[in-house]
Design a protein around this nucleic acid. Structure first.
Length: 666
RNA sequence: GCCUCCUUAGCUCAGUCGGUCAGAGCGACGCACUCGUAAUGCGUAGGUCAUCGGUUCGAUUCCGAUAGGAGGCUCCA
């Protein structure tokens, strides 16, 4: 006898012993096959996801899990990973199984094979998967003892290792995906059983749950193969990983593939070359960018506006060198903690080590302590576009978002403990407002806390700093996500994550609270009591790095920057050569208002000029022919293709100037 | 750093199973055209096929190393 509750209209039902969840759902949701699993709450236990063929017990409360819900998709993807593994082992019988969890937008499965998979292999595997899906193999759950599992999986060394991990009583770490295979509780094996013959086709150690049958997989695609370390450690052997994606419908799959295509079109590395904004000359070295004039215009506008806002908000500016003696980074602790991430030293002046700076804060600390400080000066806010160099490993360098040399819009705020909360609060407001000014509107916050292995300072100091940040973050009313162990060695941080135009999130600003470095540097200010006190330090980068923020904006706007940032704001296009002088006059008026305008006097036909300006994503085209000249007017073509013809020149100038000055981000 | 793949004209890419195969489009430049909202026509120039080394009678093509790039893994103060 069993009770069943449904989400909106909680409904109690009595069923006969032995009834499965699937049977009950078939009755309740007649005709609706979209529920592929259930969330089950047995008496007083945490709810768990279970298979539909689970038999109901007295007192169970269940809730359907739809295939297009977050949990439903994860189950779908996990089951698809199984189908892939089965296909791989059918095509490559010697392949040994690693793990195969669902991930964001898809799944993967790791295999140990003689040679890496080729794109042709993926096609073969995909075809084999189609056959398995068609065959309608049933996923059947079977609890096993550790010993039985060991015997059954004697030929799968990696699975045996997972059983060992679980059997030894160690909690299996969740970040390597292994818990998908072996959960905290009993071991289970999933058998894949042929729908017609009842024959066992394949099996895998797995905690489940799974779809009822492979037929429930509506749409999937294998994406790519790559190497991955076993259990995520570079000390372990590398396995071959195949990534795939699976969706609740063909349309959903297509939407996802379209999204990936859109993201590729927006790739800042591609747009940067197409729009002539920046490049990475191999002669300079990996991860070191040069900005071309058009990119420099954008960057300069970004910086100028930031400077202006910082001045308005009480910051003072500093400049510091790019290189320093190693002793400074010994004092700051960087050489202890981050030596591997720094460029190796150069030896000067009889063997003194000099380093390129990976961070600006030690330099700012020296400015703070260059003379005695009074409590009256606090909060002291030092700001710098500080260029830093970090030795990123060759495999991780990635366009402007992961470079070896980049410029932080870095500020260090020195204040008293009493000022700390208010300062953080107004700082967060400042940060979010400024990000909005650049056109980002959708945020959430992340709180990165201490990694005991990689940090200095007392528990009390960390606790206070962390709680202070948490309170400030919560006040904001934005979502706050925990990032345990993600902090720098000297203090916890809040990071602002922003969503771009196509819904991707980017880590933008970071705000770190630091009780440690002021001590290392013996920073002090004279209090109103006449005694020395140690200031608190707030580290904060708003763009993160200018290069990276540039890349984010480039992808966010897909290269079509708002008028105030656009490298060329206006392209003037004559109908014939005869109208060029007239447009030069119009251009001069615009230029006198600070507008970046070009007159296209080339040999191309007018249509071609429009095409060129359109491809360069210029916000305003001003076209003039005989009709316009006689009326003292120009004709607009806007970036979206719309027109406004015969606009008097002064009105046109005013319209453009207003659009630029107002920094409208449309 | 590790794994797989890639590198042919400024850009995007064809091509050579080792022997007149170094090609196209765009771009640049020249000439003609003077045109009302996304490509006018014709012509010219550009590459020791990433670099270095090896195999071979002969290498852009095969092998190795190096550099740079892509996708992952690890890392990301």
């Amino acid at each position: 006898m069993t009770i069943d509750r449904l989400p909106d209209q909680r409904e109690e039902r009595t069923v006969t012993t032995g009834t499965t969840i699937g049977q009950l759902f078939a009755e309740v949701f007649a005709g609706d096959r979209s529920n592929i699993a259930a969330r089950l709450r047995a008496a007083a236990a945490e709810p768990i996801l279970v298979d539909l063929d689970r038999e109901l017990a007295d007192g169970d409360a269940i809730e359907p899990v739809a295939i297009d819900s977050e949990d439903g998709r994860a189950i779908l993807r996990h089951s698809t990973a199984h189908v892939m593994a089965q296909a791989v082992q059918e095509v490559f019988p010697e392949a040994k199984l690693g793990i195969g969890p669902p991930i964001r937008d898809g799944f993967y499965y790791d295999f140990q094979v003689e040679r890496p998979f080729t794109p042709d292999d993926l096609k073969t595997i995909e075809q084999r998967m189609q056959a398995i899906v068609k065959q309608g193999q049933r996923f059947s759950r079977r609890p096993v003892s550790d010993e039985a599992a060991r015997q059954e999986l004697a030929g799968e060394p990696f699975k045996l290792e997972l059983i060992g991990l679980k059997g030894s009583g160690n909690a299996v770490s969740t970040d390597d995906g292994a818990d998908v295979e072996v959960g905290g509780g009993e071991l289970t094996i999933y058998d894949n059983i042929d729908a017609k013959s009842g024959e066992l086709c394949w099996k895998d150690l797995c905690r489940g749950p799974h779809l009822p049958t492979t037929r429930n997989i509506p749409a999937f695609k294998l994406m790519r193969s790559a190497a991955a370390y076993w259990r995520g450690s570079e000390k372990n052997p590398q396995l071959q990983r195949i990534y795939g994606t699976a969706w609740e419908s063909k349309d959903a799959l297509k939407a996802h593939l379209d999204f990936l295509a859109e993201a590729e079109k927006r790739d800042h590395r591609k747009l940067g070359a197409e729009l002539d904004l920046f490049s990475f000359p191999t002669e300079i070295g990996s991860g070191l960018a040069v900005f071309h004039p058009k990119g420099a215009v954008i960057r300069n506008e970004m910086e100028q506006y930031s400077r202006q806002r910082h001045v308005e908000s009480g910051y003072e500016f500093a400049y510091t060198p790019h290189a320093t003696k190693g002793t400074l980074f010994e004092l700051s602790g960087h050489l202890d903690w981050y030596k591997d991430g720094m460029y190796p030293p150069m030896q000067l002046d009889d063997g003194v080590d000099y380093y390129l700076k990976p961070m600006n804060c030690p330099m700012h600390n020296l400015i703070f302590r260059s003379r005695g400080r009074s409590y009256r000066e606090l909060p002291l806010r030092l700001f710098e576009f500080g260029t830093v160099y970090r030795y990123e490993k060759s495999g991780v360098v990635h366009g402007l978002t992961r470079a070896r040399g980049f410029t932080q819009d870095d500020a260090h705020i020195y204040c008293t403990r009493e000022q700390m909360s208010d300062e953080l609060d107004s700082l967060l407001t400042f940060v979010l407002d400024l990000l909005r000014d650049y056109g980002l509107n959708d945020f959430y916050l992340e709180l990165s806390t201490r990694d005991p292995e990689k940090s200095i300072g007392t528990d009390e100091a960390w606790a206070e700093a962390t709680e202070t940040l948490r309170k400030v973050a919560l006040k904001r009313g934005l979502d706050l996500v925990d990032d345990p162990g993600g902090a720098a060695f000297y203090g916890p941080k809040i990071s602002v994550q922003a969503k771009d135009a196509i819904g991707r999130t980017w880590q933008m600003s970071t705000i770190q609270l630091d009780f440690m470095e002021p001590g290392l540097f013996d920073l002090a200010y004279k209090g109103s009591d006449g005694a020395d006190h140690q200031p608190v330090m707030i580290h904060r980068a708003l763009f993160g790095s200018i290069e990276r923020f540039f890349a984010v904006l480039l992808e966010h706007y897909a290269g079509a920057f708002p008028a105030w940032l656009a490298p060329v704001q206006v392209t003037a296009i004559p109908i014939t050569d005869a109208h060029v002088p007239y447009l030069h006059e119009v251009a001069a008026k615009l230029r006198s208002q600070g507008i970046r305008v070009e007159v296209d006097a080339s040999d191309d036909r007018m249509q071609k000029k429009i095409r060129n300006a359109q491809k360069a994503k210029v916000p305003f085209m001003l076209i003039a022919g005989e009709e316009d000249v006689t009326k003292g007017a120009v004709s607009f073509r806007y970036r979206d293709g719309s027109q406004n013809n015969g606009v008097p020149v002064d009105e046109a100038v005013a319209e453009i100037v207003e659009a630029v000055r107002s920094r409208r981000n449309d």
